[in-house]
Simulated assay, not measured.
Amino acid sequence: MVAGEVSGDMLAARLLAGLAPHLPGARFHGIGGPRMAEQGFVSDIDMDRLTVRGLFEIIPRYREIKGIQNALRDRLLAERPDVFIGADYPGFNLGLELQLKEAGIPTVHFVSPQIWAWRGGRIKKIIKAVSHMLVIFPFEEEIYRKAGVPCTYIGHPLAELIPMEPDVAAARSALGMPPDARVIALMPGSRMGELKYLAEPFVGAVKLLAARDPDLRFVAPMAGERQRQYFTELIARAGLQSVRIDLLEGRSHEAIAAADAVLVASGTATLEVALFKKPMVIAYKVMRASYEIMRHMGYQPWIGLPNILAREFLVPELLQHAVTPQGLADAMWEQLNNAANRKTLVQRFTDMHHSLLRNSAQESAAAVMRVMRVIAASKKSS
């Protein structure tokens, strides 16, 4: 198994939990993170060595990452595992899966690349590289069935982890916040690459929002000590010592549950916010050259998962040059104070939650076991 980032680690951990009862003596190894390790996974290489964001940002590290891919490929070709599972991270995993499948090793890819959003030509490579695709959004099944790729919709694991009706009072109590406070959660991303582009405008927006309402409270879950230190320095530089900003070690779900509205970087976190039924503003900013290429390759007007699933702009998206303190503050102020919009979002996000709710660990494990049984039967008959 290979997961290259936090979201893939979470997804793969769910799959491992489902597989364990069926394969009590199996050895699971490859590249993974802490959640996979909790399920008994052995990581041969630190997952952080694969983490990179954007198109051009990968160039300085291409040789290193390609070397990791080649070393893992050689090891797996010699080992001949019963199945290889790529958890998201398509740029790395699809190339590896292609070589393994050609050598007769069954491959399962867990979470479809967003070919419905951009780079639709990837379906040609997927047909050659993937024995079975596991998808987490219901509309993806038809895409793969039409392409002739065996596919199973397993639901989204986050829909199981997040309660249908979040307990706001309990979250605020756990974080030491008054029940009647007005709270904004800040989620500028877990990677330093994201913070580089988003943390400063996020902090600038906090300054503007606090000027409008000095009683506002802010909470920001941090992915690690480097992120916390970087964010702390920006807060000090902006002169926000008098503004109540709580920086948390992780605890992102508590932060979202406690919030009245969320300022969030585009990515999986936007779906988490939707499942918590919260108003939000989505921000996205990368290297300019990367953005221009991705913009021209896109097939639809949305980048945020809640908007993609709804097929409309349920929540505002601010992209690239629009990611300014003023733009973010204005959009957040509207999300924070529009009661009618809040009521609409709660209903739409509740419907979305129901559509994504399955037993993902059980469904994904059953699909992997089917792939393994088919391969075992074909080997036996030959």
Score class of each variant (00 low, 15 high):
Pro316Ile: 13
Leu305Gln: 10
Ala367Ser: 15
Ile303Asn: 00
Val273Gln: 09
Val286Asn: 14
Ala170Pro: 01
His321Tyr: 06
Glu38Gly: 04
Ile154Trp: 06
Lys379Cys: 04
Ala181His: 05
Gln39Asp: 14
Ala258Glu: 10
Met47Tyr: 09
His296Leu: 08
Leu100His: 14
Asn338Ser: 12
Phe313Gly: 06
Phe137Ser: 03
Ala329Asp: 08
Trp333Ser: 13
Thr270Arg: 06
Arg75Trp: 08
Pro138Phe: 05
Leu94Gln: 07
Val262Gly: 00
Gly30Lys: 06
Arg342Met: 03
Leu345Met: 01
Pro21Ser: 04
Leu23Arg: 12
Pro325Phe: 00
Ala283Gln: 04
Lys278Asp: 03
Pro81Lys: 01
Ala211Thr: 08
Ile68Arg: 00
Leu336Tyr: 13
Arg53Trp: 08
Pro163Tyr: 06
Ser364Ala: 15
Pro81Met: 10
His296Glu: 15
Leu247Thr: 10
Val374Trp: 13
Leu234Ile: 11
Ile136Phe: 13
Ile293Gln: 04
Ser381Trp: 09
Arg251His: 11
Glu141Phe: 09
Pro325Asn: 13
Phe231Ile: 12
Val149Gln: 05
Gly121Phe: 09
Ala289Ile: 07
Ala199Gly: 04
Glu194Tyr: 12
Glu142Trp: 01
Leu11Ala: 13
Glu38Asn: 09
Trp116Arg: 04
Gly25Cys: 09
Gly32Lys: 07
